Amino acid sequence: MTDDAEIPEDHPRHDSLVTRHRIEDGVEMGITSQQGLIAQGRGEAFDYLLGERTIPSADDAERAAAAALLAAEHPVLSVNGNVAALVPGELVTLAEATGADLEVNLFNRTAERMQAIADHLREHGAEEVKGLAADAQIPGLSHERAKVDRDGIYEADTVLVPLEDGDRAEALGEMDKTEIVIDLNPLSRSAQVATIPVVDNAVRAVPGITEHARELADADEATLREIVDEFDADAALAAAEDAIRDGDLD
Rank of each mutant, 00 (worst) to 15 (best):
T2V: 09
D4I: 12
E6P: 01
P8F: 10
P8R: 10
D10M: 00
H11M: 08
P12R: 05
R13S: 14
H14T: 04
S16P: 01
L17G: 07
L17Q: 08
V18I: 15
T19A: 15
R22W: 01
I23S: 01
D25H: 03
E28F: 07
E28Q: 10
M29W: 13
G30I: 12
I31V: 12
S33D: 10
Q35K: 15
Q35M: 07
I38V: 14
I38W: 12
A39K: 09
E44P: 00
F46E: 01
D47W: 09
D47R: 09
Y48W: 12
L49T: 07
G51P: 00
E52G: 01
I55E: 02
I55N: 03
A58G: 03
A58T: 06
E62Q: 15
R63W: 11
R63P: 01
A65W: 01
A71D: 05
A72G: 06
A72E: 05
E73L: 08
E73A: 05
V76I: 12
V76K: 04
A84Y: 03
G89A: 12
E90P: 00
E90G: 04
E90S: 08
E90M: 09
E90R: 02
V92L: 07
L94N: 01
A95I: 05
A97E: 04
A97R: 08
T98L: 11
A100K: 02
A100I: 12
D101W: 11
E103A: 13
V104N: 06
L106N: 04
F107V: 13
F107N: 07
F107Q: 04
T110Q: 03
R113P: 00
A116F: 06
D119R: 13
D119G: 06
L121D: 02
E123F: 00
A126M: 04
E127G: 15
E128Q: 10
A133I: 13
A134L: 09
A136F: 05
Q137Y: 06
Q137H: 14
I138F: 13
H143A: 09
H143G: 13
E144H: 13
K147Q: 13
R150N: 09
D151F: 07
G152L: 10
A156E: 02
D157G: 09
T158L: 06
V159Q: 02
L160P: 00
L160T: 09
P162G: 08
P162M: 04
G166A: 09
D167M: 14
D167F: 07
E170P: 02
A171H: 05
L172V: 13
E174H: 12
K177C: 07
E179Y: 08
I180C: 11
L187G: 08
R189G: 15
S190R: 03
A191L: 09
A191Q: 09
I196Q: 01
V199G: 01
D200R: 12
D200N: 14
N201F: 06
A205W: 00
G208L: 07
H212W: 15
R214F: 05
A217G: 10
A222C: 05
L224H: 07
V228P: 00
V228C: 03
V228F: 03
D229E: 15
D229H: 08
F231S: 04
D232F: 05
D232L: 12
D234S: 10
D234W: 02
A235H: 04
A236D: 02
A240D: 01
E241K: 10
A243V: 00
I244D: 02
R245S: 14
D246E: 15
D250N: 11
